[in-house]
């Protein structure tokens, strides 16, 4: 009896979180998978079961491949750089220097700003001829490229914005982790004659590993979740050079109203994210030292 009551208690306590998770995460994910096997209903034509046809169409869709490859490059370009800069900034502002609070705040500022405002500011930076970058280059006597209007530079330009935006946010996590490291460890290492690099490499870095893992996962998820900048700055152009997967899904879903195909693409996005998470938790976790 007591046991049953306990079980009931446990389930009741879990209920609020579970209702939210089921309603906004699990059910939509399953519904997406379900819809991806049907055609898009249109006016008087209801949806019919089409099996894997949506997936076949996707494999033959050059824009899908473009978006996927762009997204991989985007992740590859932004994640290591953002995490690296975050770590550097955290180590920098963790020391006892004058104006530390101000420095921390200024590093964190990009994170507080609304995404759309940020994108508009950067849109001005990148504007040819009288944008900030163009003015600096003009001053140096260099020609300013058309950053957002050229196939080769559009995606890197977006990557820079993303790094700028994310690094400060991840810095906060590293900073918190660094504050948790006992100063006696450093003193002990110094007494043993370890160099500062050795202390970082052998003591600090392993201790920061859980944070790094957390930050990496978040950075990667953010890389696949980004859409605001694309909408404001390039609209995926020129010729899909800066189309990312989520932006393409949005376009298919809410501009073209091809909801079935959008569901198919969403399934792919979910699978990609699932694989990344699985690899990280299974492989990286083993090499991570939790205190």
């Amino acid at each position: 009896m007591n046991r049953t009551l306990n079980t009931v208690y446990a389930w009741l306590l879990l209920l609020p979180a579970m209702v939210l998770l089921v309603a906004f995460t699990h059910y939509p994910a399953l519904a997406t998978l379900w819809h991806s096997f049907f055609s898009t209903p249109k006016g008087r034509r209801p949806a019919v079961f089409v099996g894997l046809e949506n997936y076949q169409a996707m494999l033959q869709d050059p824009v899908f491949w473009r978006a996927l490859i762009n997204n991989l490059w985007f992740a590859l370009g932004t994640v290591p750089v953002a995490v690296g800069i975050a770590l550097l900034m955290a180590l920098w502002v963790n020391r006892g220097l004058a104006g530390r609070g101000f420095l921390r705040l200024s590093y964190f500022t990009p994170t507080i700003l609304p995404m759309v405002a940020v994108a508009n500011i950067w849109l001005f930076f990148y504007t040819p001829q009288y944008g900030l970058l163009a003015q600096i280059l003009q001053f140096l006597g260099l020609p300013g490229p058309n950053w957002l209007g050229t196939k080769e530079t559009a995606l890197p330009a977006l990557m820079i914005v993303s790094v700028w935006k994310e690094a400060g946010f991840f810095m906060i996590f590293y900073l918190a982790a660094l504050q948790g490291v006992s100063p006696s460890l450093r003193e002990a290492a110094m007494l043993e004659g370890a160099s500062r690099w050795q202390y970082f490499r052998r003591v600090l870095w392993p201790l920061l590993m859980p944070t790094t893992l957390f930050v990496l996962i978040n950075a990667l998820i953010n890389a696949f979740r980004l859409i605001d900048h694309v909408v404001v700055m390039t609209h995926g152009g020129p010729d899909n050079a800066s189309t990312l997967l989520l932006f393409y899904i949005y376009q298919i879903g809410f501009s073209f109203w091809d909801t079935a195909y959008a569901a198919t693409l969403t399934v792919v996005l979910l699978v990609v994210l699932g694989i990344i998470a699985a690899i990280k938790f299974r492989w990286l976790d083993k090499r991570t030292h939790y205190q």
Binding site: L123, T127, P128, Q129, Y130, P145, N146, L148, G149, T150, K151, G237, P238
Partner: peptide, 19 residues
Amino acid sequence: MPTGTIDWGTTPKDFLEKK
């Protein structure tokens, strides 16, 4: 005309900035 694509939104601004 500039090479590459020219943004729709900034074109009136380019005109007003005398570019």
